[in-house]
Design a binder for these strands. Structure first.
Length: 415
RNA sequence: CGGGAGAUGGUAGAGCGGUUGAAUACACCGGUCUUGAAAACCGGCGAGGGUAACACCUCCGGGGGUUCGAAUCCCCCUCUCCCGGCCA
């Protein structure tokens, strides 16, 4: 959630920021008005409550002094009715506010470039040069089947479309990648976590998936629980509703989890292969940082994810997302795209975001500053890395003319 | 899944239906003392909203109810602990 006081006090500026992220003026104004209405309704309600508390005290006093309370009782009853009606107004105002506020995206960081969609994203740099093939490189789905690394048909049989089975050496490489990623993250100071793959609605709201993106989530029937779409949810919410001390910041967390996504809006996209699945493995980095330090930690996380790809010998590029392509919660995002020779394209394999205080405000993650004040932390998250897509990248980049696949040097000790 | 006990501030742990947002202890922060530290002593110390700052409002697991007034009484839910069943 954005800072509504900031919106109120710096309306023009806030509006300009949200416009960069393509939030319509109507929504911004609706939010602004809902906030002011809620504040007013609350103020009048509190006034009536204060009055009621006074009368109650007086009532007690009368009783002790054995004075007659009939008159007072009438006053109290009248005020009680007033409170009830004011309460209703205030509750409605709060609900209305919450509805807009929770669905309004985060402000973009100053450094975010303007733009409509992914075409306006800005490339930062390319790392490693794509290999030149002296044969026609195969697609990973062909290589996967050929080498018995991936079984697409049986994945569909077991579940439904967009599920697959990784087997044999493919499964071993998948596992090796997870271990390699976790070790790399640990070497940068990230603590490793094994977390629940099912989280409750409060946590999903904390990181911003709910209420707006319910359609993208697998919900457990009859329960207030969801399969996590990313480890960002449990890792960020690990400190949900807690107050940390400034000294322990930054807190760096990493963990491997499967991720579950309905891919509701992706009909027809990447239907072949392993690029877009309902379930995929990912190793995630999460940081809780002092607001002054989050930019610095962001760079570290980008660097780390890129380094991992470099160690694997996979050509990739770094891209800063423009305002129009930024996700709901992110204030700034760098995508890392890996080279897929068969498609002759860079495809997203990691996305690192600085979320600022947006999730912290929702999830109530604060820290006690040196001056004793409670402030919101900044949260950051990023994949290091998406495991399935890395497997795809290895297959395609390390394929031989006969369809065989070489294993990257850094992974061999894990096999 | 069945039987019993409980849920209060960072932790432990009081709390009569009104002056208790909450005793006390420990932890923590600041100060005195000390070469420094410890000990001792003094002071501070829950959260959210609201305000220029006060005032004021809300919160004692969550939600309802009784009452002029509830942490304290009643109901429901959740969670934790102990006993039994099941089980990786």
């Amino acid at each position: 959630m954005i800072d509504l006081k900031y919106l109120q006090n710096n309306f023009q500026e806030a509006q300009a920021k949200l416009q960069k992220k393509h939030v319509s003026d109507e929504i911004i104004e609706a939010l602004h008005n809902a906030f002011i209405e809620q504040k007013q309704a609350n103020a009048t309600l509190e006034e009536a409550k204060a009055n009621q508390n006074q009368l109650s005290k007086l009532f007690g006093q009368y009783k002790r002094e054995k004075k007659d309370t009939t008159e007072l009782k009438l006053q109290v009853d009248a005020n009680k009715e007033l409170i009830a009606s004011l309460q209703e107004i205030a509750s409605k105002a709060s609900e209305a506010l919450e509805k807009v506020a929770l669905s309004t995206p985060n402000f973009p960081h100053e450094s975010v470039p303007y733009g409509e969609d992914e075409n306006d994203n800005v490339e930062i740099k390319k790392v490693l040069t794509p290999r030149v093939f002296d044969f026609e490189p195969k697609e990973h789905w062909d290589l996967g089947t050929l080498n018995n690394w991936i079984d697409f048909e049986r994945g569909v049989k077991l579940a439904k479309s967009r599920f697959s089975v990784i087997r044999g050496m493919g499964a071993k490489v998948e596992r090796a990648l997870i271990n390699f990623f976790l070790d790399e993250n640990a070497s940068k100071g990230f603590e490793e976590f094994c977390v629940p793959f099912i989280n409750n609605a409060t946590m999903l709201q904390g990181t911003g998936q709910l209420p707006k993106f319910e359609d993208d989530l697998f919900k457990i029937d009859g329960e207030d629980l969801y399969l996590i779409p990313t480890a960002e949810v449990p890792l960020t919410n690990f400190y949900h509703d807690e107050i940390l001390s400034a000294k322990e910041l930054p807190i760096l967390l990493t963990g491997y989890t499967p991720c579950f996504r309905k891919e509701a809006g992706s009909a027809g996209r990447d239907t072949r292969g392993m690029i877009r699945q309902h379930q995929f493995d990912k190793v995630e980095m999460v940081a809780l940082a002092h607001p002054d330090k989050s930019d610095e930690i962001f760079e570290m996380m980008v660097e780390n994810a890129s380094n991992i790809l470099t160690k694997l010998g996979l050509p990739h590029r770094l891209v800063t997302l423009c305002g129009g392509d930024l996700g709901f919660s992110a204030s700034k995002t760098v995508d890392i795209e890996v080279w897929l020779p068969a498609q002759q394209k860079y495809r997203e394999i990691s996305s690192i975001s600085n979320v600022g205080d947006f999730q912290a405000r929702r999830a109530k993650i604060r820290f006690k500053d040196e001056d004793g004040k409670n402030k919101l932390v900044h949260t950051l998250n990023g994949s290091a890395l998406a495991v399935g897509r890395t497997l795809v990248a290895i297959m395609e980049n390390y394929q031989n003319a006969d369809g065989g696949i070489e294993i990257p040097e850094v992974l061999r000790k894990y096999l």
